[in-house]
Amino acid sequence: MELNLQELNKTEYPIPVELQSNVAITSLSSVYNWGRRNSMWPMLFGLACCAIEMIATATSRFDFSRFGMEVMRATPRQSDLMIVSGTVTKKMVVPIVRLYNQMPEPKYVLAMGACASGGGPFKEGYNVVSGIDKYLPVDVYVPGCPPTPQALLYGLIALQKKIDGQSLSVADDVPWYGVGPSEPAPVPILGPDIIDPRQMDMIRRQAEAAANVKTEEPVYHLNAVRELPALDAEQAVAVAARPKASTAVDESIEMKSFSQAGMSADAIEALRVKRRENALQRKAARLAKEG
């Protein structure tokens, strides 16, 4: 979205003719987003192989300074964008989450390459985090191993488009204009294995269950298998006739997502209500905008 004068003045507000070349009227969000998307400063922060392609993207042949991103800052305090460029290991995810918490808002995360997106070829490794999105919210995923510089540029342009779509009037889009700074992402702990503080409760219950095998209370369960959408009739019958897992699962227990583990039922319900309201608000705003 370019800010050209004619487009800016196409509003319902009548502008006197003598002022039309001097005054422009637009929405605050447009100006704000225009500034933000064109001065996206990535953090100078390389993890693995993808970092080499990130450097190649910064050099003269591909040159991402054309998009206002040439200023790579070595400190998180001056960065808007964290490009997670490579395999995230358990040992490294602790500093990464800390760095993310130190970045000022608004901040964005781009998962570059297969490893940062989901573990990639090293997913089964004992020291590998299968995707940075297990710990941080990710805005754009760029596939590839490593992504070519063109792919990274495409991802960065996708991020700019995402910023263009954000609105100051919607609290979920720009939470940093809310009541205060948002909660920092919980920093994982290096114990016998990596520990996500959000899952502390689950880990405790697992350990209790393991120590006392005859526990009555079922621990957490997950649907282990996702059905493929396209099954022919024969396969579908076979799938339906497949015996259930022998360990009986208490169906009465409600599934919780990981981010909600440890929250009370009331809090979860409140969160849902709030999200529903926000979605409705967004819809209303969009309808109003479209007239």
Partner: peptide, 25 residues
């Protein structure tokens, strides 16, 4: 039998982690 398994779905924690039974939190 035509099902996709993601490794995350096999772990109760949804992550690549494995805790010993005697973990001291």
């Amino acid at each position: 039998a035509g099902h996709v398994h993601r490794a995350e779905e096999k772990s109760v924690f949804g992550k690549n982690v494995n805790y010993p039974a005697d973990i001291d939190l």
